[in-house]
Design a protein around this nucleic acid. Sequence first.
DNA 1: CGCCGCAAGTTAAGCGGTTAACCACCCCGT
DNA 2: ACGGGGTGGTTAACCGCTTAACTTGCGGCG
Lengths: 356, 356
Amino acid sequence: MRIKDVAREAGVSTATVSHVINNTKYVTDVTRERVLRAIKSCNYYANAHARTLASGRSNIIGLLVSDISNPFFPELVKSIEDAAFERGYNVILVNTNYDARRAADYVRRLIELNVAGVALMTTELDSKLIDELAARKVPVVFHNVGTTGEHMSDVMVDYASGIEEAVEHLVSLGHRRIAHIAGPGLFRSAAIRRQAFLDSIARHLSDAPSPAIYEGDFKFDGGRRAAGEILAANELPTGLVVANDLMALGAMHEFRMAGLKIPQDISIVGFDDITFAALSQPPLTTVCSPRAEIGKKAIDALMATIKQSGSAGEEVRVRTYLVVRETTATPARAIALEAEQSRKLSAAKTRTQLKA
Amino acid sequence: MRIKDVAREAGVSTATVSHVINNTKYVTDVTRERVLRAIKSCNYYANAHARTLASGRSNIIGLLVSDISNPFFPELVKSIEDAAFERGYNVILVNTNYDARRAADYVRRLIELNVAGVALMTTELDSKLIDELAARKVPVVFHNVGTTGEHMSDVMVDYASGIEEAVEHLVSLGHRRIAHIAGPGLFRSAAIRRQAFLDSIARHLSDAPSPAIYEGDFKFDGGRRAAGEILAANELPTGLVVANDLMALGAMHEFRMAGLKIPQDISIVGFDDITFAALSQPPLTTVCSPRAEIGKKAIDALMATIKQSGSAGEEVRVRTYLVVRETTATPARAIALEAEQSRKLSAAKTRTQLKA
DNA sequence: CGCCGCAAGTTAAGCGGTTAACCACCCCGT
DNA sequence: ACGGGGTGGTTAACCGCTTAACTTGCGGCG
């Protein structure tokens, strides 16, 4: 059932069959019909490898993610796969497990597969890999790396916009003591979020004491531990911005264990908006990192550089934004406390004045 | 940088280069060395498509899942990708979105790619697809379909064993009124779990009234709705076995909204053991569907049929088992209630006896 | 009427490997 | 001295498709 069988069946040359399949040359309707019928009657499926070999064009793209079982990724993968499917591409899924060596092995395989492009949605990236890809002129789209170049696009997620909204939200609710649970120091995304948090605080709460920052590991337990540290500190913040939802959920768990009510005792904002953010108890207010949009734009950018090779990559921007749910509220108890304190304070003052 | 460049560089024929790469023929150490050096100095990467075309062997496998964003799948995908990677295979990820047409499109593409094998981890399966695959003699491994055959293996997950453990667990805690929230009627996996539940109940609680069964959609909201129905019914069960964790979590949410305490007022057992089962509040007792094992065994079975074509597929079994966490407990309140009722009852009896 | 140009196909040369068949050489036994 | 067989490598035919270049036939135009 090869193209030559179809050609024989239709009484034409293989070239003609190829042309009707690919629409690469005008063919009369009657010939086209004959060919199509032959294709059907032979139950002919083209051989993609032969096609790629002959044409130099492949319809496979590589998708690298750090860890598909991290709840951030599935939706991203889904949207990428979806966009690729629509455009006729197949995606090879690569799970690096945060392992640079494994990523390198895979990049080699992808190059051997002559992939049309690569979506590097990992956080950890070896620059040698990128060089390798660049040397082979493989179109690439990154995620928050900040480098674009020939064949290299980047979808930059504007973490700051969402963090700003989060801080603004807390401040407008009346919070003045806001802490942050950051991600691991060496993660770029963690560093950006941390800085964005500090900037926003500086902007909105310039007179308040500088905010406490705790560091977690981006996982549930890291959130628990950080919350433990917060509880151990002498002054509890009333608001908390957490660098990802998993840690936010972990922190909520720990606070609840300690008998705190959320949001009455402490308001919490997460980051990412993973599926479970909406399902937690209470539903988590969080900053949405729109993964469906990220995936779609990544493929758009990749396709653009695939179509016209030699083109410079583009830098696409995606905003993050706050999704208010039920873990944030006016810090009523804290405000009452402060009011009480200032009342006592003024009463004391009055007394001393009276004494004088 | 093609094989002929390497051959020229090393001063040998392309055949020799091919042989040292693939270890297909003995080559003297000095020649081998020369070739390897040439490969390195040319920075040569073999072309996988040419290799596949010439050899007829591909190192791509197709992995079909219904929906990667369903929390059941990521871990399965991960273990499959992992096992495939180790064996030198690349996986093309296919997200069918529960759409038979899309699955069909993809199967065609996979055949065109001459994939070495296909892992059909979807719930919905068109028999035409399977025929197509069978006709092309593509090795396939299913998930709970129950058909094996030439080139077709199946990893059967023994849902019943876990359900049995769950029911046993509840019964041994003292539960006598146990209900079930089932999955959508037309899902095979849902039907099997439902039947396993009924069987277990019949085995352990033959004297009790036949258990109530509610139907959900395998999603969080379906669990909420089902829980709503349960609350609306006149007699609350003390124990609940839910067909998957997402619905169990939804049900917990609903019960909590209604003011019930878990597990004091109602014990809940989920199914799947998704990541969030352990993170819920309280952590969910559930039946673990060991996805890492399923994935690994699926690839093992697939590889077996790939290696020796013409072999009959095997049927692999995987047990599910109960993971006890904190949503199950002795139905204290219910027992107290019943005790109270029976006391009243006997008191009433005594009264009537006295009267008599 | 002869020639041009276009329309519709065909021919055949790759694409980059694999591998069966073949060859040259050398060692060894008789 | 000579044939046989093993060793280490080469030759070249393919795998199935694409596509540039070429052919053929025909209508239109000067």
